[in-house]
């Protein structure tokens, strides 16, 4: 019974991963979105650092931020699309009439998000090494993996909040996604150290796991972290946020069933 139930849960979870994979396979635009924007962003920022004549240490600082941001951007997009496509296709009620829950949805879409993020992470690492002489592998494979894992776990928090917004506001949830991502760009130290931020924003920066993961990885490129153990802090905060985000998502689905939003979004 236990294994039969476990099998059912795994199949349901992989349904959302399959959906995401099929969307990527069939929508050229989605693939373009995954590959083109991160690459464009890396090239333009990389060229800017050359134009400004930044020393290599500074170039490394900035490009680490750009690559980390791309991983989060792609991962959260994958998670959001699994719901947004159902809303745009007006098929959400058929999916939510099946015995699926937030865990299946998050597990499946996040898994595909990790695959896409890993691809883009690898591509950007190789490209930045060739074009801008930033060798990501200098930090060591384990540290690189821990950095990537931290980013993808944090992606789950962002993705779940966007999904929760989608269950509440439908297709307009992408506004929320843009807002969250913009806040991350502003306060997480992607292009600059958080110390240059005003005090209030610096406080916000240290509430965001991405700040810690960036501090951790940049420490291998000569930047002293401000937190005693950035990796641990990053993972602890991410774990807390993931639990909160999952709760919000469950609440949002519950609210949608209470207010008839699921049926309205499928009309």
């Amino acid at each position: 019974m236990f294994f039969s139930n476990l099998q059912k849960h795994l199949i349901r979870t992989s349904a959302f991963a399959l959906k995401n994979w099929l969307i990527t396979k069939k929508r050229g635009f989605h693939l373009f979105e995954i590959l083109f924007w991160p690459l464009l962003s890396l090239i333009s920022v990389g060229l800017l650092t050359q134009f400004l004549g930044l020393e290599s240490k500074m170039v490394e600082f900035v490009l680490i931020g750009v690559i980390a941001f791309s991983v989060i951007q792609i991962g959260q997009l994958d998670m959001a699309y699994v719901i947004l496509y159902s809303i745009w296709n007006k098929s959400l009620k058929h999916e939510m009439a099946a015995p699926v829950n937030a865990f299946h949805l998050v597990g499946g879409s996040w898994t595909m998000g990790v695959v896409h993020s890993a691809l883009i992470f690898l591509l950007l690492c190789v490209f930045s090494s060739v074009a801008f002489h930033l060798n990501f592998f200098d930090a060591g494979i384990v540290r690189l993996l821990l950095f990537f894992l931290g980013l993808t776990f944090f992606t789950a928090s962002v993705g779940m909040v966007v999904c929760a917004l989608a269950f509440r506001f439908g297709g307009r949830a992408h506004v929320g996604a843009t807002f969250i991502v913009s806040v991350l760009v502003l306060v997480s130290g992607i292009y600059y150290p958080v110390e240059i931020l005003p005090k209030a924003l610096r406080f916000v920066a240290y509430l965001i796991p991405l700040t810690y993961f960036l501090e951790y990885f940049r420490s291998f490129y000569g930047f002293t972290p401000k937190s005693p153990n950035p990796l641990l802090f990053g993972f602890l905060l991410t774990a807390a946020y993931n639990m909160i985000a999952l709760y919000l998502l469950c609440l949002s689905i519950q609210n949608a069933r209470q207010k008839g939003i699921l049926t309205k979004m499928s009309e």
């Binding site: 099998q7 399959l18 959906k19 296709n89 007006k90 058929h94 999916e95």
Partner: peptide
């Protein structure tokens, strides 16, 4: 309505998976 660019088989397979 179902996912618009999924084929008949893909849609049925997807919903079959949702039911475990």
């Amino acid at each position: 309505n179902f996912t618009d660019n999924f084929s008949v088989l893909e849609n049925l397979n997807y919903y079959g998976m949702l039911y475990g």
